[in-house]
Nucleic acid binder design. Structure first.
Length: 427
RNA sequence: GGAGAGAUGGCCGAGUUGGCUGAAGGCGCUCCCCUGCUAAGGGAGUAUAGGGUUUAUAGCUCUAUCGAGGGUUCGAAUCCCUCUCUCUCCGCCA
Protein backbone atom coordinates (compact mmCIF):
# COMPACT_ATOMS: atom_id res chain seq x y z
CA UNK A 1 0.00 0.00 0.00
CA UNK A 2 1.18 3.48 -0.77
CA UNK A 3 1.55 6.06 1.96
CA UNK A 4 -1.86 7.76 2.20
CA UNK A 5 -0.14 10.92 3.37
CA UNK A 6 1.83 11.05 0.14
CA UNK A 7 -1.36 10.74 -1.87
CA UNK A 8 -2.97 13.57 0.01
CA UNK A 9 0.03 15.84 -0.18
CA UNK A 10 1.36 15.27 -3.67
CA UNK A 11 -1.04 13.22 -5.71
CA UNK A 12 0.24 14.60 -8.99
CA UNK A 13 3.71 13.22 -8.46
CA UNK A 14 2.26 9.85 -7.45
CA UNK A 15 0.13 9.81 -10.58
CA UNK A 16 3.16 10.63 -12.69
CA UNK A 17 5.21 7.82 -11.19
CA UNK A 18 2.37 5.32 -11.57
CA UNK A 19 1.94 6.36 -15.17
CA UNK A 20 5.48 5.14 -15.83
CA UNK A 21 4.28 1.61 -15.20
CA UNK A 22 1.16 2.14 -17.23
CA UNK A 23 -1.24 2.69 -14.35
CA UNK A 24 -3.70 5.55 -14.54
CA UNK A 25 -4.38 6.99 -11.12
CA UNK A 26 -7.85 8.47 -10.90
CA UNK A 27 -6.80 11.62 -9.09
CA UNK A 28 -10.23 13.15 -9.37
CA UNK A 29 -11.90 10.18 -7.73
CA UNK A 30 -9.33 10.07 -4.98
CA UNK A 31 -9.50 13.78 -4.22
CA UNK A 32 -13.26 13.63 -4.18
CA UNK A 33 -13.38 10.68 -1.77
CA UNK A 34 -10.67 12.22 0.32
CA UNK A 35 -12.35 15.58 0.76
CA UNK A 36 -15.65 13.89 1.57
CA UNK A 37 -13.85 11.76 4.10
CA UNK A 38 -12.28 14.79 5.68
CA UNK A 39 -15.52 16.66 6.32
CA UNK A 40 -17.46 13.57 7.31
CA UNK A 41 -14.78 12.44 9.74
CA UNK A 42 -14.57 15.90 11.34
CA UNK A 43 -18.34 16.05 11.73
CA UNK A 44 -18.54 12.55 13.14
CA UNK A 45 -15.80 13.14 15.63
CA UNK A 46 -17.37 16.41 16.73
CA UNK A 47 -20.60 14.58 17.43
CA UNK A 48 -18.75 11.91 19.32
CA UNK A 49 -17.06 14.56 21.42
CA UNK A 50 -20.44 16.07 22.16
CA UNK A 51 -21.86 12.69 23.12
CA UNK A 52 -18.93 11.93 25.40
CA UNK A 53 -19.28 15.27 27.10
CA UNK A 54 -22.98 14.98 27.79
CA UNK A 55 -22.69 11.40 28.94
CA UNK A 56 -20.13 12.55 31.43
CA UNK A 57 -22.37 15.38 32.59
CA UNK A 58 -25.30 13.03 33.06
CA UNK A 59 -23.16 10.70 35.09
CA UNK A 60 -22.04 13.49 37.38
CA UNK A 61 -25.51 14.92 37.79
CA UNK A 62 -26.86 11.51 38.65
CA UNK A 63 -24.15 10.98 41.24
CA UNK A 64 -25.24 14.16 42.95
CA UNK A 65 -28.88 13.15 42.87
CA UNK A 66 -29.97 15.85 40.46
CA UNK A 67 -32.77 15.50 37.96
CA UNK A 68 -31.17 14.32 34.73
CA UNK A 69 -34.26 14.39 32.56
CA UNK A 70 -33.53 17.79 30.98
CA UNK A 71 -30.04 16.59 30.08
CA UNK A 72 -31.43 13.42 28.57
CA UNK A 73 -33.89 15.40 26.49
CA UNK A 74 -31.08 17.59 25.20
CA UNK A 75 -29.27 14.65 23.63
CA UNK A 76 -32.35 12.77 22.51
CA UNK A 77 -31.70 12.80 18.79
CA UNK A 78 -27.94 13.06 18.97
CA UNK A 79 -27.43 9.34 18.87
CA UNK A 80 -29.45 8.83 15.71
CA UNK A 81 -27.57 11.55 13.94
CA UNK A 82 -24.29 10.07 15.07
CA UNK A 83 -25.21 6.61 13.88
CA UNK A 84 -26.12 7.98 10.49
CA UNK A 85 -22.86 9.89 10.10
CA UNK A 86 -20.82 7.02 11.42
CA UNK A 87 -22.17 4.48 8.98
CA UNK A 88 -21.59 6.96 6.17
CA UNK A 89 -18.04 7.45 7.31
CA UNK A 90 -17.43 3.72 7.60
CA UNK A 91 -18.66 3.16 4.11
CA UNK A 92 -16.51 5.94 2.74
CA UNK A 93 -13.42 4.71 4.53
CA UNK A 94 -13.98 1.22 3.22
CA UNK A 95 -14.30 2.60 -0.25
CA UNK A 96 -11.12 4.62 0.12
CA UNK A 97 -9.24 1.73 1.62
CA UNK A 98 -10.36 -0.68 -1.07
CA UNK A 99 -9.21 1.76 -3.69
CA UNK A 100 -5.83 2.18 -1.99
CA UNK A 101 -5.36 -1.58 -2.01
CA UNK A 102 -5.63 -1.65 -5.79
CA UNK A 103 -2.80 0.85 -6.33
CA UNK A 104 0.52 -0.74 -7.30
CA UNK A 105 3.85 0.32 -5.87
CA UNK A 106 5.79 3.21 -7.35
CA UNK A 107 8.66 2.10 -9.58
CA UNK A 108 12.08 3.22 -8.44
CA UNK A 109 13.75 5.99 -10.45
CA UNK A 110 16.43 3.58 -11.61
CA UNK A 111 13.86 1.28 -13.23
CA UNK A 112 13.89 1.69 -17.01
CA UNK A 113 10.68 2.78 -18.66
CA UNK A 114 8.94 0.32 -20.93
CA UNK A 115 5.73 -1.49 -21.69
CA UNK A 116 6.58 -5.15 -22.10
CA UNK A 117 9.31 -7.58 -21.18
CA UNK A 118 11.01 -6.76 -24.48
CA UNK A 119 12.11 -3.52 -22.91
CA UNK A 120 13.75 -5.09 -19.90
CA UNK A 121 17.41 -4.16 -19.62
CA UNK A 122 20.11 -6.79 -19.55
CA UNK A 123 22.51 -6.10 -16.71
CA UNK A 124 24.99 -8.93 -17.06
CA UNK A 125 25.62 -12.41 -18.43
CA UNK A 126 27.33 -15.31 -16.75
CA UNK A 127 28.71 -18.20 -18.79
CA UNK A 128 28.15 -18.87 -22.47
CA UNK A 129 25.16 -20.71 -23.86
CA UNK A 130 25.97 -24.40 -23.69
CA UNK A 131 27.27 -25.74 -26.99
CA UNK A 132 26.66 -29.28 -28.20
CA UNK A 133 28.16 -31.34 -30.97
CA UNK A 134 24.73 -32.82 -31.57
CA UNK A 135 21.21 -31.42 -31.81
CA UNK A 136 20.09 -30.82 -28.21
CA UNK A 137 16.60 -31.92 -27.22
CA UNK A 138 14.25 -30.15 -24.91
CA UNK A 139 13.36 -31.53 -21.49
CA UNK A 140 10.05 -32.95 -22.67
CA UNK A 141 11.73 -35.28 -25.15
CA UNK A 142 14.59 -36.01 -22.79
CA UNK A 143 12.19 -36.85 -20.02
CA UNK A 144 10.02 -39.01 -22.22
CA UNK A 145 13.02 -40.91 -23.57
CA UNK A 146 14.21 -41.57 -20.06
CA UNK A 147 10.71 -42.65 -19.14
CA UNK A 148 10.76 -40.43 -16.09
CA UNK A 149 8.63 -37.42 -17.01
CA UNK A 150 4.97 -38.06 -17.71
CA UNK A 151 2.51 -35.32 -18.58
CA UNK A 152 -0.24 -37.62 -19.80
CA UNK A 153 -0.72 -39.45 -16.55
CA UNK A 154 -0.65 -36.14 -14.69
CA UNK A 155 -3.44 -34.88 -16.93
CA UNK A 156 -5.39 -38.04 -16.12
CA UNK A 157 -5.12 -37.70 -12.38
CA UNK A 158 -5.38 -33.90 -12.32
CA UNK A 159 -5.50 -31.76 -15.44
CA UNK A 160 -3.16 -30.10 -17.87
CA UNK A 161 -0.20 -28.17 -16.48
CA UNK A 162 0.74 -30.89 -14.04
CA UNK A 163 3.51 -33.44 -14.23
CA UNK A 164 4.49 -36.77 -12.74
CA UNK A 165 8.19 -37.36 -12.25
CA UNK A 166 9.72 -40.78 -11.75
CA UNK A 167 12.86 -42.24 -10.28
CA UNK A 168 16.07 -40.29 -10.82
CA UNK A 169 14.39 -37.20 -12.22
CA UNK A 170 12.09 -36.98 -9.19
CA UNK A 171 15.11 -37.49 -7.03
CA UNK A 172 17.13 -34.90 -8.93
CA UNK A 173 14.47 -32.31 -8.19
CA UNK A 174 14.60 -33.25 -4.53
CA UNK A 175 18.39 -32.99 -4.63
CA UNK A 176 18.13 -29.51 -6.11
CA UNK A 177 15.87 -28.41 -3.28
CA UNK A 178 18.11 -29.84 -0.57
CA UNK A 179 21.16 -28.35 -2.18
CA UNK A 180 19.68 -24.86 -2.42
CA UNK A 181 18.41 -24.87 1.14
CA UNK A 182 21.77 -26.01 2.45
CA UNK A 183 23.58 -23.38 0.42
CA UNK A 184 21.41 -20.53 1.66
CA UNK A 185 21.38 -21.61 5.27
CA UNK A 186 25.09 -22.34 5.57
CA UNK A 187 26.67 -19.84 3.16
CA UNK A 188 24.18 -17.00 2.99
CA UNK A 189 22.97 -16.88 6.57
CA UNK A 190 19.27 -17.58 6.04
CA UNK A 191 17.12 -19.36 8.60
CA UNK A 192 15.11 -22.25 7.23
CA UNK A 193 11.39 -22.19 7.94
CA UNK A 194 8.60 -24.65 7.36
CA UNK A 195 5.29 -22.95 6.69
CA UNK A 196 1.64 -23.67 5.88
CA UNK A 197 0.72 -24.21 2.23
CA UNK A 198 -2.80 -22.95 2.84
CA UNK A 199 -3.23 -19.36 3.96
CA UNK A 200 -6.09 -17.05 4.79
CA UNK A 201 -7.18 -14.03 2.77
CA UNK A 202 -5.53 -11.58 5.15
CA UNK A 203 -2.13 -13.01 4.34
CA UNK A 204 -2.73 -12.59 0.63
CA UNK A 205 -3.78 -9.01 1.20
CA UNK A 206 -0.60 -8.49 3.17
CA UNK A 207 1.78 -9.42 0.39
CA UNK A 208 -0.39 -7.93 -2.36
CA UNK A 209 -1.96 -10.91 -4.18
CA UNK A 210 -5.38 -9.73 -3.06
CA UNK A 211 -7.63 -8.00 -3.86
CA UNK A 212 -6.38 -7.58 -7.43
CA UNK A 213 -5.28 -11.08 -8.36
CA UNK A 214 -7.98 -13.29 -6.97
CA UNK A 215 -8.35 -15.12 -10.30
CA UNK A 216 -4.73 -16.28 -10.12
CA UNK A 217 -5.27 -18.13 -6.84
CA UNK A 218 -6.55 -21.57 -6.02
CA UNK A 219 -9.06 -21.33 -3.20
CA UNK A 220 -10.74 -23.89 -0.99
CA UNK A 221 -14.50 -23.93 -0.70
CA UNK A 222 -14.56 -24.16 3.05
CA UNK A 223 -15.65 -21.31 5.22
CA UNK A 224 -13.58 -19.35 5.94
CA UNK A 225 -11.81 -19.86 2.64
CA UNK A 226 -8.18 -20.77 2.56
CA UNK A 227 -5.95 -20.31 -0.44
CA UNK A 228 -3.18 -22.50 -1.78
CA UNK A 229 -0.02 -20.45 -1.66
CA UNK A 230 1.16 -19.09 -5.03
CA UNK A 231 4.64 -18.68 -3.53
CA UNK A 232 6.33 -19.16 -0.16
CA UNK A 233 6.64 -15.40 -0.09
CA UNK A 234 3.11 -15.29 1.28
CA UNK A 235 3.42 -17.42 4.43
CA UNK A 236 7.06 -16.52 5.08
CA UNK A 237 6.54 -12.77 4.84
CA UNK A 238 3.30 -12.92 6.79
CA UNK A 239 5.12 -14.36 9.78
CA UNK A 240 5.89 -10.76 10.68
CA UNK A 241 2.43 -9.40 9.99
CA UNK A 242 1.19 -7.20 12.85
CA UNK A 243 4.57 -7.39 14.54
CA UNK A 244 6.81 -4.71 15.92
CA UNK A 245 10.33 -6.08 15.70
CA UNK A 246 13.25 -5.19 17.91
CA UNK A 247 16.33 -3.72 16.30
CA UNK A 248 18.45 -6.66 17.42
CA UNK A 249 16.60 -9.26 15.32
CA UNK A 250 17.15 -7.33 12.10
CA UNK A 251 17.74 -8.04 9.34
CA UNK A 252 15.51 -11.11 9.18
CA UNK A 253 16.58 -13.57 6.50
CA UNK A 254 14.47 -16.63 5.90
CA UNK A 255 14.27 -19.38 3.33
CA UNK A 256 11.69 -22.05 2.69
CA UNK A 257 11.07 -24.81 0.20
CA UNK A 258 7.41 -25.09 -0.69
CA UNK A 259 5.19 -26.08 -3.54
CA UNK A 260 3.56 -23.15 -5.32
CA UNK A 261 0.09 -23.23 -6.86
CA UNK A 262 -0.96 -20.92 -9.65
CA UNK A 263 -4.01 -20.92 -11.83
CA UNK A 264 -2.18 -19.26 -14.72
CA UNK A 265 -5.55 -17.88 -15.68
CA UNK A 266 -4.28 -15.32 -18.12
CA UNK A 267 -1.73 -17.47 -19.94
CA UNK A 268 -3.76 -20.01 -21.85
CA UNK A 269 -1.70 -20.22 -25.02
CA UNK A 270 1.66 -19.78 -23.39
CA UNK A 271 4.24 -22.40 -22.52
CA UNK A 272 1.78 -25.23 -22.92
CA UNK A 273 4.61 -27.64 -23.67
CA UNK A 274 6.64 -29.02 -20.82
CA UNK A 275 7.30 -28.02 -17.26
CA UNK A 276 7.93 -24.32 -17.74
CA UNK A 277 4.50 -23.16 -16.65
CA UNK A 278 2.74 -25.51 -14.25
CA UNK A 279 -0.15 -25.19 -11.84
CA UNK A 280 2.08 -26.73 -9.19
CA UNK A 281 5.81 -26.38 -8.83
CA UNK A 282 8.44 -26.40 -6.12
CA UNK A 283 10.42 -23.33 -5.22
CA UNK A 284 13.03 -22.28 -2.71
CA UNK A 285 12.20 -18.77 -1.63
CA UNK A 286 14.41 -16.15 -0.02
CA UNK A 287 12.74 -13.50 2.13
CA UNK A 288 14.34 -10.58 3.90
CA UNK A 289 12.87 -8.08 6.32
CA UNK A 290 15.31 -5.23 6.76
CA UNK A 291 15.79 -1.74 8.16
CA UNK A 292 14.65 0.88 5.65
CA UNK A 293 18.13 2.15 4.85
CA UNK A 294 19.40 -1.35 4.10
CA UNK A 295 16.95 -2.56 1.50
CA UNK A 296 18.84 -1.50 -1.63
CA UNK A 297 21.99 -3.27 -0.55
CA UNK A 298 19.86 -6.21 0.44
CA UNK A 299 18.36 -6.44 -3.03
CA UNK A 300 21.81 -6.73 -4.59
CA UNK A 301 22.88 -9.28 -1.99
CA UNK A 302 19.73 -11.37 -2.30
CA UNK A 303 20.00 -11.44 -6.07
CA UNK A 304 23.59 -12.55 -5.64
CA UNK A 305 22.45 -15.43 -3.43
CA UNK A 306 20.18 -16.67 -6.18
CA UNK A 307 22.93 -16.21 -8.77
CA UNK A 308 25.25 -18.28 -6.64
CA UNK A 309 23.02 -21.30 -7.11
CA UNK A 310 23.19 -20.99 -10.89
CA UNK A 311 26.92 -20.47 -10.83
CA UNK A 312 27.50 -23.47 -8.59
CA UNK A 313 25.40 -25.57 -10.95
CA UNK A 314 27.34 -24.10 -13.83
CA UNK A 315 24.20 -22.99 -15.63
CA UNK A 316 24.58 -20.04 -18.02
CA UNK A 317 22.26 -17.17 -17.22
CA UNK A 318 21.71 -13.48 -17.56
CA UNK A 319 20.44 -10.87 -15.18
CA UNK A 320 17.88 -8.35 -16.34
CA UNK A 321 16.27 -5.38 -14.72
CA UNK A 322 12.53 -5.39 -15.32
CA UNK A 323 11.17 -2.31 -17.03
CA UNK A 324 8.30 -0.37 -15.47
CA UNK A 325 5.68 -2.17 -17.54
CA UNK A 326 6.86 -5.65 -16.52
CA UNK A 327 7.21 -4.85 -12.84
CA UNK A 328 5.12 -6.85 -10.37
CA UNK A 329 2.30 -5.14 -8.52
CA UNK A 330 4.06 -4.76 -5.17
CA UNK A 331 7.60 -4.27 -6.39
CA UNK A 332 9.55 -1.07 -6.72
CA UNK A 333 12.45 -2.75 -8.52
CA UNK A 334 12.98 -6.30 -9.73
CA UNK A 335 15.88 -8.26 -11.16
CA UNK A 336 15.05 -11.40 -13.07
CA UNK A 337 17.58 -14.16 -13.52
CA UNK A 338 17.09 -15.99 -16.80
CA UNK A 339 18.72 -19.34 -17.32
CA UNK A 340 19.82 -20.61 -20.71
CA UNK A 341 17.58 -23.37 -22.05
CA UNK A 342 19.14 -25.17 -25.05
CA UNK A 343 15.79 -26.78 -25.86
CA UNK A 344 14.29 -23.35 -26.52
CA UNK A 345 17.53 -21.62 -27.49
CA UNK A 346 16.56 -18.82 -25.18
CA UNK A 347 16.94 -17.42 -21.69
CA UNK A 348 13.97 -18.12 -19.42
CA UNK A 349 13.12 -16.66 -16.04
CA UNK A 350 14.20 -18.84 -13.15
CA UNK A 351 14.30 -16.27 -10.37
CA UNK A 352 12.72 -12.94 -9.65
CA UNK A 353 14.22 -10.76 -6.93
CA UNK A 354 12.35 -7.69 -5.71
CA UNK A 355 12.56 -4.84 -3.30
CA UNK A 356 9.14 -3.77 -2.04
CA UNK A 357 10.32 -0.95 0.20
CA UNK A 358 7.54 -0.38 2.76
CA UNK A 359 4.73 -1.32 0.35
CA UNK A 360 4.11 -4.75 1.84
CA UNK A 361 5.11 -3.71 5.35
CA UNK A 362 2.41 -1.06 5.34
CA UNK A 363 -0.20 -3.66 4.44
CA UNK A 364 1.26 -6.12 6.90
CA UNK A 365 1.76 -3.56 9.66
CA UNK A 366 5.29 -4.83 10.06
CA UNK A 367 7.32 -2.29 11.97
CA UNK A 368 10.38 -1.90 14.12
CA UNK A 369 11.22 0.42 16.93
CA UNK A 370 13.82 2.67 15.38
CA UNK A 371 16.39 3.22 18.15
CA UNK A 372 17.33 6.59 16.69
CA UNK A 373 13.86 8.08 16.69
CA UNK A 374 12.30 5.86 19.35
CA UNK A 375 9.30 5.49 17.07
CA UNK A 376 7.61 2.58 15.36
CA UNK A 377 8.39 2.70 11.67
CA UNK A 378 7.61 0.45 8.74
CA UNK A 379 10.32 -1.96 7.70
CA UNK A 380 11.25 -2.93 4.16
CA UNK A 381 10.63 -6.37 2.70
CA UNK A 382 12.30 -8.21 -0.15
CA UNK A 383 12.12 -11.60 -1.69
CA UNK A 384 13.44 -13.67 -4.52
CA UNK A 385 13.43 -17.19 -5.80
CA UNK A 386 16.51 -19.09 -4.96
CA UNK A 387 15.47 -20.89 -7.23
CA UNK A 388 12.37 -22.30 -8.87
CA UNK A 389 12.98 -26.05 -8.77
CA UNK A 390 10.87 -27.08 -11.74
CA UNK A 391 12.57 -24.71 -14.10
CA UNK A 392 15.94 -25.48 -12.58
CA UNK A 393 15.32 -29.15 -13.23
CA UNK A 394 14.50 -28.28 -16.83
CA UNK A 395 17.71 -26.25 -17.07
CA UNK A 396 19.86 -29.06 -15.69
CA UNK A 397 18.28 -31.65 -17.97
CA UNK A 398 18.71 -29.56 -21.07
CA UNK A 399 22.18 -28.16 -20.33
CA UNK A 400 23.61 -31.43 -19.03
CA UNK A 401 22.17 -33.73 -21.68
CA UNK A 402 24.47 -36.06 -23.56
CA UNK A 403 24.31 -37.35 -27.11
CA UNK A 404 22.74 -40.65 -26.05
CA UNK A 405 19.99 -38.95 -24.06
CA UNK A 406 21.54 -39.57 -20.65
CA UNK A 407 21.90 -36.63 -18.31
CA UNK A 408 25.04 -35.79 -16.39
CA UNK A 409 24.53 -34.75 -12.80
CA UNK A 410 26.16 -31.42 -11.85
CA UNK A 411 29.11 -31.84 -9.48
CA UNK A 412 27.42 -29.85 -6.77
CA UNK A 413 24.44 -32.22 -6.72
CA UNK A 414 26.26 -35.53 -6.75
CA UNK A 415 26.58 -35.64 -2.98
CA UNK A 416 22.80 -35.30 -2.84
CA UNK A 417 22.45 -38.21 -5.28
CA UNK A 418 24.62 -40.59 -3.29
CA UNK A 419 27.54 -40.02 -5.61
CA UNK A 420 25.62 -40.81 -8.76
CA UNK A 421 27.06 -38.96 -11.77
CA UNK A 422 24.72 -39.81 -14.62
CA UNK A 423 21.03 -40.38 -15.05
CA UNK A 424 20.51 -43.25 -17.46
CA UNK A 425 17.47 -44.52 -19.23
CA UNK A 426 17.23 -47.89 -17.53
CA UNK A 427 17.80 -46.57 -14.05
C1' G B 1 -16.69 -34.16 16.87
C1' G B 2 -18.47 -33.65 22.53
C1' A B 3 -17.97 -30.97 27.45
C1' G B 4 -15.90 -26.93 30.01
C1' A B 5 -12.63 -22.46 30.92
C1' G B 6 -10.60 -18.17 29.01
C1' A B 7 -8.82 -13.71 25.74
C1' U B 8 -7.29 -6.54 29.36
C1' G B 9 -1.21 -2.11 27.77
C1' G B 10 6.11 -4.88 26.29
C1' C B 11 4.95 -8.84 30.19
C1' C B 12 2.15 -10.35 34.70
C1' G B 13 -2.39 -9.00 36.62
C1' A B 14 -6.91 -5.97 39.01
C1' G B 15 -11.41 -4.40 37.33
C1' U B 16 -18.72 -7.97 35.71
C1' U B 17 -24.78 -4.00 41.14
C1' G B 18 -22.68 -0.12 33.41
C1' G B 19 -20.70 6.56 34.92
C1' C B 20 -13.71 11.45 34.99
C1' U B 21 -10.87 3.72 33.95
C1' G B 22 -6.76 4.70 28.38
C1' A B 23 -7.63 1.58 32.18
C1' A B 24 -5.26 0.11 39.69
C1' G B 25 -0.93 -2.62 41.18
C1' G B 26 3.56 -5.18 39.99
C1' C B 27 7.59 -6.39 36.58
C1' G B 28 10.39 -4.54 32.69
C1' C B 29 12.35 -0.22 30.22
C1' U B 30 14.20 5.24 30.06
C1' C B 31 16.01 9.54 32.69
C1' C B 32 17.53 11.82 37.38
C1' C B 33 19.23 11.44 42.61
C1' C B 34 21.71 8.65 46.45
C1' U B 35 25.25 4.80 47.52
C1' G B 36 33.43 4.58 46.86
C1' C B 37 32.37 -1.96 44.17
C1' U B 38 28.11 -5.44 44.43
C1' A B 39 23.25 -5.53 46.30
C1' A B 40 19.69 -2.10 47.52
C1' G B 41 16.99 2.70 47.91
C1' G B 42 14.34 7.50 46.35
C1' G B 43 11.97 10.48 42.36
C1' A B 44 9.97 11.24 37.38
C1' G B 45 8.46 9.16 32.86
C1' U B 46 6.75 4.97 29.85
C1' A B 47 0.41 2.38 24.50
C1' U B 48 -0.99 2.62 19.47
C1' A B 49 -3.52 4.48 15.31
C1' G B 50 -6.19 8.30 12.92
C1' G B 51 -8.27 13.37 12.20
C1' G B 52 -7.96 18.80 12.79
C1' U B 53 -4.59 22.92 13.41
C1' U B 54 0.66 23.93 11.41
C1' U B 55 5.10 25.26 5.53
C1' A B 56 6.70 21.13 8.61
C1' U B 57 8.22 19.27 13.44
C1' A B 58 7.05 20.16 18.34
C1' G B 59 2.83 21.69 20.63
C1' C B 60 -2.36 21.99 21.20
C1' U B 61 -6.95 19.53 20.38
C1' C B 62 -10.48 15.76 19.04
C1' U B 63 -11.62 10.58 17.97
C1' A B 64 -10.89 5.34 18.19
C1' U B 65 -8.86 1.01 20.57
C1' C B 66 -9.61 -3.90 27.02
C1' G B 67 -9.55 -10.84 20.86
C1' A B 68 -12.97 -9.27 16.18
C1' G B 69 -17.73 -7.58 14.51
C1' G B 70 -22.67 -6.14 15.69
C1' G B 71 -26.56 -4.72 19.45
C1' U B 72 -28.81 -2.39 24.03
C1' U B 73 -27.96 2.55 26.53
C1' C B 74 -27.46 9.48 27.41
C1' G B 75 -23.06 6.44 28.66
C1' A B 76 -20.05 -0.37 27.79
C1' A B 77 -13.58 -3.46 29.53
C1' U B 78 -18.21 -4.39 32.28
C1' C B 79 -25.03 -6.39 29.73
C1' C B 80 -26.84 -9.24 24.96
C1' C B 81 -25.74 -11.74 20.05
C1' U B 82 -22.33 -13.72 16.29
C1' C B 83 -17.46 -15.05 15.05
C1' U B 84 -12.13 -16.08 15.81
C1' C B 85 -8.33 -17.90 18.69
C1' U B 86 -6.10 -20.26 23.18
C1' C B 87 -6.25 -23.83 27.21
C1' U B 88 -8.24 -28.47 29.89
C1' C B 89 -10.80 -33.23 29.58
C1' C B 90 -13.08 -37.01 26.31
C1' G B 91 -13.35 -39.06 21.30
C1' C B 92 -10.76 -39.65 16.63
C1' C B 93 -6.38 -39.62 14.08
C1' A B 94 -0.30 -39.33 11.46
Amino acid sequence: MLDPLLLRKDIQSVALQLKRRGFELDTKLFNELESKRKTLQSETEALQAQRNQSAKAIGQAKAQGEDVQPLLDAVANLSDELKFKQSGLNELQNQLNTYMLTLPNLPDESVPGGKTEDENIEISRWGDPTSFDFEPKDHVDLGADLGMVDFEVAAKISSSRFVVLHKDIARLQRALGQYMLDLHTTEHDYDEVYVPYLVNAESLYGTGQLPKFEEDQFATRTEPGLYLIPTAEVPVTNIVRDEILGDSVLPLKRTALTPCFRREAGSYGRDTRGMIRQHQFEKVELVQVVRPDESWDALEALTGHAEQVLQNLNLPYRKVCLCTGDLGFSSTKTYDLEVWLPGQSSYREISSCSNFLDFQARRLKTRWKNPKTGKNEFLHTLNGSGLALGRCLVAVMENYQMANGDIAIPDALQAYMRGQTIIKRDA
